[in-house]
Design a protein around this nucleic acid. Structure first.
Lengths: 124, 124
DNA sequence: CTTGACCTTGACGCTGGGGTGAAGGTTTAC
DNA sequence: GTAAACCTTCACCCCAGCGTCAAGGTCAAG
């Protein structure tokens, strides 16, 4: 299978596939004419990478999932390293939520403070 | 007062002051030699802008606060437009928190699903 | 034999906001 | 007289995941 077929089957662009390759996530063979050649298993890999990227993982962080698939598992996320990657991502999301919650608290404090500022002290 | 004095008093760099000017937040006069000249009130403006930027507002969104100060108010946030800008920012933070919370839920679903995947079905 | 649908590598663009850096020149301060 | 502070304009940075040419090679169909 050539890159265009793979891209179509996996639901990504040709450009994205080449990008994934540059990140070490797919390793196609080469035909005599230089064309990249892929197997059916690469479709699952590319689909998995796409799904994980949409969950906010970086390309690098999808690596354990790809390895898990290559090891012959039906699912990319049943390997310990994949579970760990999930937990890392969840922790990062939690951190970000905590930051935003803290920021929100500062903003509401400022707002209520400004709202209750004595009218008479205002200019005009 | 020249730009260097203002920057030092407000706790920002000279470059940042010129950047704020490019965003229309400060409008210095000019001395005969071309140097920018500032008044004491500009110190408060720059400090306010700096504080608001650290709260995640964009330069443009600090505009009402700057106007509020220029109108002669002691505080930049007692004007209706400032309160409104606070509320807008809070709403944006809330939206982001909601997105992340939703994302977190998807991740934990995937994690628990993968964790409970039957051992016997795993490769190796 | 030619069209057009593939493929190749390489390189730059974009998004986005708040800046920073460099270059090249004038003015002020000590 | 020279260092420090000022001026302007232009460009670049971060961050990742691509998009979009450019300039060409390959291949099956009609």
């Amino acid at each position: 299978m050539h890159i265009g077929d793979l891209a179509e089957r996996a639901g990504v662009t040709v450009r994205a596939v080449r990008y994934y390759e540059s990140r070490g996530l797919v390793q196609p063979g080469r035909a005599a004419n230089g064309y990249r050649t892929y197997g059916d298993e690469d479709v699952a890999v590319v689909r998995e990478v796409k799904a994980l990227l949409s969950l906010g993982l970086t390309a690098e962080q999808t690596y354990p999932f790809v390895e898990c698939l290559r090891a012959g598992n039906d699912r990319a996320d049943v390997c310990p390293a994949s579970l760990s990657a999930y937990r890392t991502r969840i922790a990062a999301v939690d951190d970000r939520i905590a930051e935003l919650t803290e920021l929100r608290a500062r903003l509401t404090d400022l707002l209520s403070d400004a709202e209750t500022y004595p009218e008479k002290a205002r200019a005009r």
